[in-house]
Design a protein around this nucleic acid. Structure first.
Lengths: 223, 223
DNA sequence: CGTAGATTTGAGTTCTGTCAAATTTTGTGG
DNA sequence: CCACAAAATTTGACAGAACTCAAATCTACG
C-alpha cells in the first residue's frame, strides 16, 4: 500500500525549519511523514509562535484541515526529515481504488483530530510540570524503545520548539527537565537523547497519561 | 437538504449541562446544532475542565473526531438547545446520494478543524485580555446583529464556561470584561446580552481578528 | 419579593516569563 | 583527531500576570 503512494509521490528531504508548501497550484496537498518530524505552527504578528501539532513518522498531513496559510505554516523541526507529498486529487484517485488505503487515511486523520483536542486539554488545563511530563510521555510512547535502564528516545525538537508546543518558555522547559534529571526520572546524553529511568513516575505527573496511551494504542492498531 | 436530514434525525432539546451521547449502540453519531450552543469538554481527575470547542447553530459534530469518551463529553451550555442526531451509518447513506450534502458536511468539518487549531493558537500564545477579546470577536461574528449603537449579541455561556474555554479563571474573565465596559467598548444589559460599541477597538485587541473573520466568512459561504 | 446562584471586586500569593550571564554541545575546518 | 566558533541550553535573580480566596453585589426565576 505504501509503495503505491511512494510511486505517485514527490519525496522531499527538508532541513530544519524548511517550510513545506501547503498548496500546489491551487490543489490541496497531502504529506506522509517518513522520517524526522514536522510541526504545524501558527505565527503571530508580535513574533510569538505556537506549534499546533507535531507530526511523527507514520503521520499524515492534509492541508485542508488547517486555518489559512497566512496564519499557519508546516515545516520540519528535525535537522533532516523525509516526507512524501501528493496532490489531493492524485491521492483521492489512489484511495478511490483502494479501500484499505482509504480506511488507513481516515483513521490517521481521526487520530490527529483527537491529538489536537488532547493538545488543547494539555495546554489549557495543566501546569508547566504536567505539560512537560505529558509531552515526554507522548514522545516515549511514539518514539521510545526499551533499553537496559529504562526507555530511550530521542527528542526531535529543540527546547524552544518544545516550549512553543507546550505554550511555555524555553527557560521554564529547561528548568523542569533539569528537575526531572535531578530526581532521577530522566537521564540525558547529549542534547536530545533521553532515557526515562522511571516511566511510572513520569506518568504519575501527567494527568493525561492514560488518554495518551489510548490514543497511541489506537494509532498503532491502525498502522 | 436540511429537511432530508431532519426527517431521518432524532430531535433533542437538551437543557444546560445535559450530556449528549457520543455513541449510539456502538455506532458513531452526528449532531447538527440548530439552536443554543454545545460544548465539547475534557474533564480532569482534579476537577478542572477544559472546553475544547463550542458549537453554534449551523455547526456539526462527529464523534469520531474526539479523544476517548472517558476523557471528553458533549453537552449543552445554553439553558436550552435544539440538536438533530443521526447515527453515522444513516447519515453516510444519506450523503452518498446527495453530493451537495456531502460537500457541505466536509466543509463544516474542515472549518471545525481550523477552529480547533485557532483555539490552540489563542490559548497558547495570547495573554488574558487578548483571549477574551478574541472570544468576543468570534461571538460577534457568529451571533452578532447590527443595532443602533453597535453590534448586539448574546453570550451563550456563563463566565465559568468562558473561562474554561479560554483556559482562564472566571474571576479574571469578569475583571477583563469590566475593564472593557469601563472603556466603553462593551455595554451590557443583564448577564448575557452585550452590545459592542466599538468593534474596531475590540478587534485591535485580538491579534487573530483577521484570521477569525476569514474562518467565519468561509463558513458563511459554505452554508 | 425573596432566594439561590452567578458575577464582581479586592488583597495577597504563586507560578511562569524575562533578562542576563555562564556553560555545554554541536558542527566545521585544519 | 583537535581546536574553535556558533548555537543551544542551563541557571539565577527578579518582575509581572493570573490565580485563589473571601466578601459583597447583582440577576434570574419561582
Amino acid at each position: 500500500m505504501l509503495s503505491s503512494i511512494h510511486s505517485r509521490a514527490v519525496t522531499i528531504r527538508p532541513r530544519r525549519y524548511q517550510k513545506l508548501a501547503v498548496a500546489c497550484e491551487a490543489d490541496e496537498v497531502v504529506y506522509f511523514v517518513r522520517a524526522g518530524a514536522l510541526a504545524l505552527s501558527a505565527g503571530l504578528p508580535n513574533g510569538r509562535r505556537q506549534i499546533l501539532s507535531i507530526l511523527y513518522p507514520g503521520d499524515v498531513f492534509r492541508s485542508a484541515l488547517t486555518p489559512s496559510p497566512a496564519l499557519t505554516g508546516l515545516s520540519a523541526v528535525t535537522a533532516s526529515a523525509e516526507v512524501w507529498r501528493l496532490r489531493w486529487p492524485t491521492f483521492e484517485a489512489l484511495a478511490a481504488g483502494d479501500s484499505a488505503l482509504q480506511q488507513l487515511f481516515d483513521s490517521l486523520i481521526t487520530d490527529q483530530a483527537a491529538r489536537l483536542a488532547m493538545h488543547i486539554a494539555i495546554i489549557g488545563s495543566l501546569g508547566a510540570d504536567e505539560r512537560v511530563a505529558s509531552f515526554l510521555v507522548e514522545i516515549a510512547l511514539r518514539l521510545g524503545a526499551p533499553v537496559a535502564g529504562g526507555i530511550a528516545f530521542e527528542i526531535p525538537l529543540t527546547r524552544t520548539d518544545i516550549a512553543d508546543y507546550l505554550a511555555l518558555n524555553a527557560d521554564t522547559v529547561s528548568r523542569i527537565m533539569s528537575r526531572l534529571r535531578a530526581k532521577g526520572v530522566l537521564a540525558q546524553s547529549g542534547r536530545s537523547l533521553m532515557i526515562c529511568r522511571d516511566m511510572k513516575a513520569l506518568e504519575s505527573q501527567s494527568p493525561f497519561s492514560a488518554a495518551l496511551q489510548q490514543i497511541c494504542a489506537r494509532a498503532r492498531r491502525a498502522r
